[in-house]
């Protein structure tokens, strides 16, 4: 099975989780953006054209499911993917801390994009503090779980690529 397709499926599961369990459960006041972590991982480890559009579609799915203004999440996710691809990829080093820092910054980037784009975020000075606090908490939480999620995604990717390798070797031989 295509790794990108598998990641897209995982992304959809994350979207559903964020829209249901994580969103409604009161034991998680901060909802980690699992989909965003996936997109960052995707941009860093398997940047392909289909990954770009899958990221766009995942953001768009969030828009359809929960956003009052369609397109803002698609835009934010794609922007995060682009920045992760263009900037983070070149300073990338494998490690839990680096992945956490990357996701931390990605969350800020995503919400920054949302704030710039969406007219919903026309806030007063005090409102900015509240929003910044919420972003900070979400970013920290997402950064904390990012290393684990990265490990999981890497293991899925490695397994799928290992399975695919023999057939490609056979093709090359023939």
């Amino acid at each position: 099975m295509n790794v990108s397709l598998a990641f897209f499926g995982i992304g959809l599961v994350f979207v559903v989780l964020q829209s249901t369990v994580l969103h409604l459960a009161s034991w998680t006041p901060i909802i980690p953006d699992l989909t965003l972590i996936l997109c960052v991982y995707w941009a860093l480890n398997r940047p392909r054209v289909e990954a770009v559009w899958a990221t766009f579609l995942l953001g768009y799915a969030i828009d359809i499911l929960s956003s009052p203004q369609p397109g803002v999440n698609a835009l934010a996710f794609t922007a995060v993917f682009l920045v992760a691809y263009v900037v983070f990829r070149y300073v990338w080093a494998t490690g839990a801390l680096i992945s956490a820092v990357t996701v931390f910054m990605a969350v800020w980037l995503k919400v920054g994009t949302l704030i710039v784009i969406s007219p919903l975020f026309e806030l007063t000075a005090r409102g900015w503090v509240v929003v910044a606090d919420a972003i900070l908490r979400e970013a920290i939480f997402s950064a904390c779980i990012a290393p684990v999620l990265f490990l999981m995604l890497r293991s899925i990717q490695n397994r799928m690529e290992t399975v695919r390798k023999p057939s490609s070797l056979v093709d090359a031989a023939s």
Binding site: F56, Y60, G71
Partner: peptide, 22 residues
Amino acid sequence: YRVPIHCVLALALAFYVVTVSS
């Protein structure tokens, strides 16, 4: 540069969606 190009295209599309929807 196909990946960044597609990113820009996706961004444009998303921007279009936001603009139209707003």
